[in-house]
Amino acid sequence: MDSFLQNLINGIGIGSIYALIALGYTMVYGILKLINFAHSDVFMVGAFMGYYGARIFSKLMYGSSVVEPGWTLFLLVLAFSVACCGVLGYLNERIAYRPLRNAPRIASLITAIGLSFLFEYGGQMVFGPDPKFFPQLLEKKQIEFFGTSITSHLVIVLVVALVFMGILQYIVYGTKFGRAMRAVSHNYETASLMGIPTDRVISITFVIGSMLAAVGGVLYGLSYSKIDPLMGIMLGLKAFVAAVLGGIGNVPGAVIGGLVIGIVESFAGASALSTYKDAIAFVILILILLFRPSGIFGKHQAEKV
């Protein structure tokens, strides 16, 4: 019973990070029908911005780059990383994808792959290829919870992730911008004819997605402490699987998909299948695409002849 609960909680922890990344994939796919492979690397950059942000702000606040845990610092670092990644997301779209808007989709896909590799291996050159230890921004406490102990970080990951998902849900379904976004996702040309500034909507979508990825990056650093420039590859792929599982283009679907993948992996990791853990997300992906290509919550779309 103990280990069951423990696995479940661990799964929810990593699952909410998958979910944060999956949201960016699902929004961009919903609008541009593009798998933005570089999104997972924005997540990685977010983690590194957290790493460097922590040192910068410590220096500014305490005059020392030795990081003192504290809420002010945590929130400052989070804001810094989110801002950096927002700008990065904007630049990605503006420089790499927008010029290809009318090109064949395969050109955008290949660009996305290229961009992703640029960040990963460029990151190795800039940040160094070795893993870095993410500073303890907040003190780690053990909390007793129905007979198992969980870390305070896990609780923070969950709360922060939920807050940002809530904000996103409000933006998409409760604001005028969200309506514009859904309109563009439904039909790009028509939305443009109706006076929706599609380019701006797409830019902002990239920015929002990248900001969520940054949140994911900082939270990942906080709870798993080791970060490296290639960390986005596997996490990103799994987050994409989560988006597909939930039904691509569907915001709540991405969150649930992320949690499901996280939990399944967590249980598999604790079982005899542990050495196959990295393959499980892909097996799930293949099964969904074969049996329910539109995902759990997606709508099936037929091609017009």
Binding site: L100, G114, F117
Partner: peptide
């Protein structure tokens, strides 16, 4: 260099090529 510049060059070639 500590990192392999190969993949970076590949990536840039690919992005420029698409453009």
């Amino acid at each position: 260099l500590t990192a392999d510049p190969r993949m970076v060059i590949y990536a840039i070639v690919l992005i420029l090529l698409m453009r």
